[in-house]
Design a protein around this nucleic acid. Structure first.
Length: 441
DNA sequence: TCTGGGGTCCTAGGACCC
DNA sequence: TCTGGGGTCCTAGGACCC
């Protein structure tokens, strides 16, 4: 039996932990650059504001003063997520953290009533200790557990926010009510294909012959159907498995046509990729840089390109990555265009214990590694970004807009104080504290 | 005026091998 | 008129997820 715990309106719920006055109000959290809506409170959903709605269109749904828009603070959300996952981990047999706000796990009892009881207390505990509402579904497969949690979340009469789908008749009943695009694994394109054939519910979908599924989709679609029929065949990679690619990219606050500005952004992205590689104890061989114009600006010529560079050896050095990123940028940068977004991706990643020194360049690799390790030590001890590559020293022209930060540092004390001691050995929440920042400067 | 960021997996087709 | 058979590896693009 699999369970899926899913946080309700996660980013908004996190903001409410720090600011209870947001409760009961329509609240949305915005993407980077304050671009579009990536989380909505129930009140915001009720206004009809869709997921992904551009921030400037929110006013089309209501009087703008009625909706509270917040810039996302993902470090804070990640910290709350860690606390929640840890609480789940106390009862879960095999915790699979699937995303920042979701986790699958196996249940300990053969008896479903016992499992139901356990999950009900888990929901309460997370609410009490972290303050984020969670819904939990459980069923024989992960795909069905997803549906069960969906049902738990939508059913306003279900105050426990736990739903088990364990009985075959009930599963069929529910599948006939579930819209096909609410099924995990059915996205926009497959939804359109299925709808055009009159397949609008999960119940109709499970009747389709395998040959048809293989024609319109791939093996994953066949697996999704199997899972809905109760056959367990989709697995999740453990979170601690090494990344195959690491990406860092941003939409700029405005269009940019100076090469140096773009280069500064690229160096910053490469530096972040390098830091993440080192944190994971790995190194990359290939670096890809992409730049693109603003596809919403009809008045400007559009240009978009990318370039991959294979480096002489695997590296996690910020300087090496930045150097090769700039080579890639030089290959694709064109004058007379305006750019709105850029990014750096590293691939061909291996862990340090598989690392082989480049036979021609080994000495340099060793020196780079030592230097980076020293920088990491200093930054860990004295605070992030104490030592950075010079071009990233100041906030670049390219930096995204973030005009909707909540200023809530005063609530921090209250927040940490409400934890039982055993949760409190977490590092303190990272908060934007403007007074502190000024002191630092 | 204003439209995000970060991942994974699968498949088809081309290049290349014998 | 007619032009083998079988394999691997790589890459780009497309689908999906949050």
């Amino acid at each position: 039996m699999y369970a899926l715990a899913d946080c309700n309106n996660f980013f908004v719920s996190c903001e409410r932990v720090f600011n209870p006055s947001l409760n009961g109000k329509p609240v949305v959290v915005l993407s980077g650059n304050d671009g579009c809506v990536i989380a909505r409170s129930n009140e915001a959903k009720a206004l009809g504001i869709p997921m992904g709605c551009p921030a400037f269109q929110v006013k089309n749904y209501t009087n703008p003063a009625n909706v509270i828009m917040l810039s996302g603070r993902h470090i804070v959300y990640r910290d709350l997520s860690n606390r929640i996952m840890r609480i789940i981990g106390e009862v879960a047999l095999n915790l699979e953290v699937y995303s920042v706000d979701e986790a699958f796990f196996a249940l300990p009892f053969d008896d479903n009533e016992q499992n139901h009881k356990l999950l009900t207390s888990l929901v309460k505990k997370i609410q009490q200790y972290v303050g984020v509402p969670v819904s939990i579904g459980f069923a024989p497969t992960r795909t069905l557990a997803k549906i069960a949690s969906h049902v738990a979340k939508k059913d306003k009469n279900n105050v426990e926010r736990v739903k088990g789908l364990t009985d075959a008749d009930e599963i069929n009943l529910v599948l006939n009510r579930i819209k096909i695009d609410d099924v995990w694994g059915i996205g926009r394109k497959l939804n359109a294909k299925l709808l055009s054939c009159g397949i609008d519910t999960a119940g109709k979908f499970i009747m389709l012959p395998k040959s048809y599924l293989q024609r319109i989709g791939n093996i994953n679609l066949v697996r999704t159907q199997q899972e809905l029929k109760g056959v367990d065949c989709i697995s999740i990679n453990p979170v601690d498995i090494a990344h195959k690619s690491i990406m860092n990219s941003r939409t700029f606050g405005h269009v940019i046509n100076k090469k140096q500005e773009i280069a500064d952004a690229i160096i910053s992205f490469a530096q972040s990729c390098a830091a993440q590689l080192r944190q994971e104890g790995s190194a990359a061989l290939t670096i890809t840089v992409y730049i693109r114009g603003d596809h919403f600006r009809q008045d400007l010529p559009f240009y978009s390109n990318s370039c991959s560079v294979r480096m002489p050896s695997h590296t996690a050095s910020a300087m090496e990555l930045a150097k090769h990123a700039l080579i890639a940028l030089n290959n694709i940068y064109r004058d007379n265009f305006y750019y709105r977004k850029a990014g750096v991706m590293v691939t061909d990643i291996i862990s340090n214990d598989q690392l082989q020194l480049d036979i021609f360049n080994g000495e340099n690799d060793v020196r780079q590694a030592k230097l980076m390790s020293a920088i990491d030590n200093i930054n860990n001890r004295y605070g992030k970004k104490q030592i950075v590559l010079a071009p990233t020293l100041s906030r670049g022209e390219w930096a995204p807009l973030q005009n909707h930060f909540a200023t809530l540092s005063k609530t921090l004390h209250f927040y940490t104080g409400m934890y039982p001691r055993y949760i409190c050995d977490y590092k303190p929440i990272v908060q934007r504290d403007e007074d502190e920042e000024k002191k630092h400067q």
